[in-house]
Write a protein that binds this DNA or RNA. Sequence first.
DNA 1: GAGCCGTCTGGACGAGCGTCAAGATTCTCT
DNA 2: AGAGAATCTTGACGCTCGTCCAGACGGCTC
Lengths: 208, 208
Amino acid sequence: MASTAGSADRIARRQVDKFDERRRQLADAALLTLSELGYARTSLREIAQHSGFSHGVLHYYFRDKVDLITHGVRRYKAHCVERYDGIVAPAGDPSELLARVCDALVGTLDQDAVLHRLWYDLRTQSLFEESFRADVAEIDDSLERMIWRTVQAYAELLETVPTCTPSFAYATVDGLFQQALLRHLAGAPGALDGLRDGLRRQLPTLVA
Amino acid sequence: MASTAGSADRIARRQVDKFDERRRQLADAALLTLSELGYARTSLREIAQHSGFSHGVLHYYFRDKVDLITHGVRRYKAHCVERYDGIVAPAGDPSELLARVCDALVGTLDQDAVLHRLWYDLRTQSLFEESFRADVAEIDDSLERMIWRTVQAYAELLETVPTCTPSFAYATVDGLFQQALLRHLAGAPGALDGLRDGLRRQLPTLVA
DNA sequence: GAGCCGTCTGGACGAGCGTCAAGATTCTCT
DNA sequence: AGAGAATCTTGACGCTCGTCCAGACGGCTC
């Protein structure tokens, strides 16, 4: 009896795992499509086409369009923190940390440009559509904390303390990043260097 | 003959003026609707409803939807520069200018929140849709120049010079403004004060 | 092999979209 | 007053959208 129950559990778990993995797969296809076309121009049929399945399957795995996009946004967040983790920790002196932060942000701006474009799109959409607001706010908070950890680590290496609020640090750095993204996607050649210069100037002003 | 030609001119001008005024009127209705619903959810029928006319008239005054929205965006720019002009010029000492700039930005953030929301929406849309790109870039430049004039005036009153680039000044100030807008529209009570504090901290770092 | 269940397809639906054009209405000038 | 132009309404078109559903497919257990 125990063995049958165990195998039933295993079967159930395998099905659940498969179910969740398919959801993940479809959410990734949604993310890909959204980053390519933007929220306003993304349809379920287009997402399905990017996933290799037919459009009908989306309503088998997700309640509706909002449910699908929400899951995609959550996957985006996972992608983000995964990418940024490990940047702050290993650095011996302040200038090394500064260089690493610049490299990391400039690197992701270049490589993940369309994903960041999508992020700013969804963040703006959340101002009009309430459905995304909670998820967007959560991601925004995690980004603010990410920047704040960097500022704190930088201050510690300088043997001092931050002199601004976390939201101030995030707002100014995000402003620099967003402007660089706009110019980079518009084809401006100096966008990446502009971000690096901006960060090298702004970050030191955030600590005593 | 001269008199007939003159009256014909007058007539033509009156018609043209009326034509242009109706265009202006409809573009304003478009702007109102866009600021309310966002780009992704705004339809021509909805715009027409806000204008008091039927939806068919839009294609009498505008080539297509993009043409209409483009005119609306141009009107938005006019509204912006009109609002901000006269802030920088009359100020006796640095702290007065700083206070005026803070008041102006905090005031428009509060009063024109939905219009600014629309601006960030359209700026992001321009990253996906090429039609708006030129107009958006032009507005962005004019905003950068506006901030730069402020920084220059502030430096002059301090009898010194700016120490950053125009794009750096714009990026950081815009970052502060956008974050404050996000929080203000989300109902956060401290958003306006946060913007004021942020500006009072950031602007002095932009000059020697 | 038969039946079952999880998975997936493809078509249908009603609604809303941008666009257009034919006709009604209003204005203007002789 | 009435012709003609300018303006506006109305309804239609072709299309795409989100959603739903009947049924096909494939692996699994008796």
